[in-house]
Design a protein around this nucleic acid. Structure first.
Length: 453
RNA sequence: GAGAUUGUAGCUCAGUUGGUUAGAGCGCCAGAUUGUGGUUCUGGAGGUCGCGGGUUCGAGACCCGUCUUUCUCCCCA
């Protein structure tokens, strides 16, 4: 017998934590629904053929793979055991745990495209798993809350994502945040403009670190990655863009030579206009041309949400992908979506002390249990309390009152109804206010009214 | 995947250059109080020192491996 333990990077959530997590889930779900999104759930387990190759080489490595059931080694030859682990994996595992919610969504859309009302708007609140090395704000099992629209190119979707993020964060009490927005087409245009067309991948990896390591080190890294002095010299205008929230004019001037970039700039400006059209006050949006994110499938807008002055990664990310369903044989379906990380939001709110107080009280009133006869009398009372809409429970054992009150105290139950021989004889029950310690007697109706107040 | 770091009671932590029976606070249980919680007092239970090996007369402490925690890189929610 060994002591039980949790698998690395996983956590239990006790009642106190669940109350807080539920608050986050409810807020997000409510907002998604308000914008017309419909719920979807997909299995935790997907075929590896669905998951592999969608997240890049690193992603494939971070996938949790499930060993085939039964005698998984039955069909292996001696030679197979000499294969490198990657190839061996394909022979002994054909299922894995989902890595995000976007790819399973794309699979679902492809499999059900005949029956879906297009454009299809779905939200999905489920855990995902990554075989990452855990650290602050990074877990191996965590919840994502996704909202995606598939089947339309309309930039209204992008604007609504901006609106939803504002609403959700506002309702959670997170006020000091920044929604960074970029467009993949601008990144492509920058690569063209500096004479390194098609090199936006390595360009972004380096430029993405700007606020972390500074301009000089970014330039050094670019040179290391094969960019010439000429390339990086043309990049100079980019470092001057950070001052404004939406420097469209400067961008147009700099990238005038790239049609792709101009299209991206147009798209973003339209999104900005629409957000203004919604009448949103104090928008926390910022155009950030250094924002890159998962380049593997984003083609248009790119989003990322950072909470300011909190040392944690982004709490949300998303973007537009023109051809995600293409890998499942259905090209031409454009989608755009956002994903919120509940676990990081939780950490942020805990650090900033933003959770509403008094959310831990789950039971409103407890009935004591003096003896079998009193408990039996209490059953009817208990039923009526619950019918009155009150969270009520009876202490299950006839033990000394001290113990029962101690239980109520520790569960922070605000009211206790005592029922003993006196109460049964008179029909007037004793109500104890656990906060003040005061007691009074009254009929069940009278007491119920007090408890409900 | 690379580098660093952590692990002693339910929790937070002491534990000297390696030396007898590993401690404290809080919490928990019981009683003081057989119909009254939070305060107080008295008593009590609870540890294979993460796990496995090694060095030593002797290891919680030293060495190796492993798991785990936290952090950096990479990447990400």
């Amino acid at each position: 017998m060994s002591k039980p333990s949790l698998a690395r990077g996983t956590r239990d959530f006790g009642p106190d934590q669940m109350v807080k997590r539920t608050f986050i889930f409810d807020t997000i779900r409510r907002t998604f629904q308000r914008y017309g999104f419909q719920p979807l759930e997909t299995p935790a387990i997907e075929n590896l053929s669905v998951l592999m190759g969608k997240y890049g080489d690193e992603g494939d490595q971070l996938l949790f793979k499930i060993l085939n059931s039964g005698n998984y080694n039955e069909k292996l030859t001696g030679q197979d055991w000499q294969l490198d682990p990657k190839q061996l994996t394909t022979k002994i595992s054909e299922k894995g745990l989902r890595y995000d919610l976007t790819v399973p969504f794309a699979r679902y859309v492809v499999m059900n495209r005949g029956t879906l009302t297009m454009p299809f708007k779905r939200y999905q609140l489920q855990p995902v798993w990554r075989a990452d090395r855990p650290q602050k704000g990074r877990y191996r099992e965590f919840y994502q809350c996704d909202a995606d629209v598939v089947g339309t190119d309309s930039l209204l979707c992008e604007a609504e994502i901006v609106m939803m993020l504002h609403t959700i964060l506002h309702e959670l009490g997170i006020t000091d945040f920044t929604i960074k927005i970029n467009n993949r087409k601008i990144l492509t245009g920058i690569a063209e403009a500096i004479g390194a067309a098609g090199q936006e991948g390595p360009l972004c990896v380096a430029v993405d670190k700007l606020d972390k390591i500074g301009k000089d080190k970014v330039l050094a890294e670019l040179h290391e990655r094969g960019f010439s002095e000429e390339n990086t010299f043309s990049l100079e205008p980019m470092f001057d863009l950070a001052s404004e929230a939406a420097p469209f004019a400067q961008l147009r001037e700099w990238l005038a030579g790239s049609e792709t970039a101009l299209k991206g700039i147009d798209e973003l400006e339209q999104v900005w206009r629409m957000v203004e059209g919604f009448g949103l006050q104090n928008a926390r949006t910022q155009l950030d041309v250094t924002l890159a994110r998962g380049l593997s499938y984003y083609t248009g807008a790119i989003f990322e949400v950072k909470v300011n002055n909190v040392q944690i990664g982004s709490i949300s990310g998303g973007g537009r992908y023109d051809n995600l369903t293409g890998t499942f044989g259905v090209p031409g379906l454009s989608g755009v979506g956002i994903s919120l990380g509940v676990d990081r939001i939780y950490d942020v709110m805990e650090e900033l002390d933003l959770f509403p107080k008094d959310q831990t009280i789950t039971t409103r009133v407890m009935l004591t249990n003096f003896d079998a006869q009193a408990a039996n009398y209490g059953l009817g009372v208990l039923y009526r309390l619950r019918q009155a809409g009150l969270n009520a429970e009876m202490y299950p054992d006839s033990v000394k009152l001290k113990k029962q009150l101690d239980y109520a105290d520790r569960k922070q139950i605000p009211f206790v109804i005592l029922i003993g021989s006196e109460e049964m004889a008179s029909g007037r029950l004793t109500l104890k206010n656990m906060r003040t310690g005061e007691q009074q007697t009254g009929t069940l109706e009278e007491l119920t009214a007090i408890i409900q107040a």
